[in-house]
Simulated scan of single mutants.
Amino acid sequence: MLRLLWRYQGKRYVMALGVPDTPINRSVAQIKANQIQLDMASDNFDPSLKRYKSIASVEGEAITCFELFEQFIEYKQQFVDPRTLEKYRACLKYIEGF
């Protein structure tokens, strides 16, 4: 997994990019590094790092594990036996507890 490490005004910063190390992802990481470097040089650096997070992670819709499993059950209703759906719903109750 790729991450960026740098220092600015005596403070150490680390930003995990959340992507595997591939040539394309390295190019994306280099672009982000260049943006951060430019912002530091122009005194526009965002110490919260929100400006540098990917658009997908900032704008992405958050979904809970419970909601995801509910959607899974709705999808599987078309393909599985009703007894299997009962087991899925039982699992859903356990998930709801967490």
Score class of each variant (00 low, 15 high):
Ile73Asn: 03
Gln30Glu: 15
Met1Phe: 08
Asp43Glu: 12
Asn34Phe: 11
Met15Val: 06
Gln30Phe: 05
Asn34Ile: 00
Tyr75His: 15
Tyr88His: 10
Val14Arg: 15
Cys91Val: 13
Phe72Ser: 04
Ile73Trp: 04
Lys87Asp: 09
Asp39Lys: 05
Ser54Tyr: 12
Gly18Asp: 01
Arg51Phe: 01
Lys32Gly: 01
Lys50Cys: 03
Gly18Phe: 04
Arg7Met: 12
Cys65Leu: 10
Phe79Gln: 05
Phe45Gln: 05
Tyr52Met: 04
Lys53Glu: 13
Thr84Trp: 02
Ile55Trp: 09
Glu61Met: 13
Val58His: 10
Arg26Glu: 05
Leu4Met: 14
Phe45Asp: 03
Gln9Met: 14
Ala16Thr: 06
Met40Glu: 01
Ser42Val: 08
Gln78Lys: 15
Met40Ala: 01
Gln9Glu: 15
Ser57Cys: 01
Arg89Tyr: 02
Tyr13Cys: 07
Lys11Pro: 05
Arg51Glu: 06
Lys93Val: 09
Pro23Glu: 10
Gly97Phe: 03
Glu59Arg: 15
Ala41Gln: 15
Ser42Arg: 14
Lys76Gln: 14
Arg12Phe: 08
Tyr8Gln: 08
Gly18Lys: 03
Ile55Ala: 08
Gln78Asn: 13
Asp21Trp: 09
Leu2Thr: 02
Gln37Cys: 10
Arg12Cys: 15
Leu5Tyr: 12
Leu85Trp: 07
Tyr94Gln: 12
Phe72Trp: 13
Gln37Val: 04
Ile31Met: 11
Arg3Cys: 07
Phe98Ser: 08
Met1Glu: 11
Met40Cys: 03
Glu74Ala: 11
Gln37Tyr: 10
Val14Gly: 09
Ile36Pro: 00
Ser27Arg: 14
Pro23Met: 09
Pro47Ser: 04
Pro23Cys: 04
Leu92Thr: 01
Trp6Lys: 06
Leu92Tyr: 01
Glu86Arg: 10
Leu5Thr: 11
Phe66His: 12
Pro82Gln: 11
Pro47Met: 02
Ala62Tyr: 13
Leu49Glu: 03
Phe45Thr: 06
Ala90Ser: 07
Phe98Ile: 09
Leu5Ile: 10
Gly18Asn: 04
Pro20Trp: 04
Lys50Trp: 01
Glu61Tyr: 06
Glu86Ser: 06
Asn25Asp: 07
Arg51Tyr: 07
Ala41Arg: 15
Arg3Asn: 05
Leu49Arg: 11
Asn34Val: 02
Cys91Gly: 05
Cys65His: 01
Phe72Ala: 05
Glu67Gly: 09
Met15Gly: 02
Phe79Ile: 05
Cys91Leu: 11
Asp46Met: 10
Gln37Lys: 14
Arg12Thr: 13
Lys76Arg: 15
Val19Arg: 14
Thr84Arg: 03
Leu49Gly: 04
Phe66Ile: 02
Ala16Trp: 07
Asp39Phe: 06
Cys91Glu: 10
Lys50Gly: 00
Asp21Arg: 10
Val19Asp: 03
Ile36Trp: 01
Glu74Cys: 06
Glu86Gln: 13
Ala56Lys: 15
Val80Gln: 04
Glu70Ile: 12
Tyr88Ile: 10
Gln77Glu: 05
Ile63Gln: 14
Pro20Thr: 10
Pro20Glu: 11
Thr22Trp: 05
Pro20Ile: 06
Ser57Pro: 00
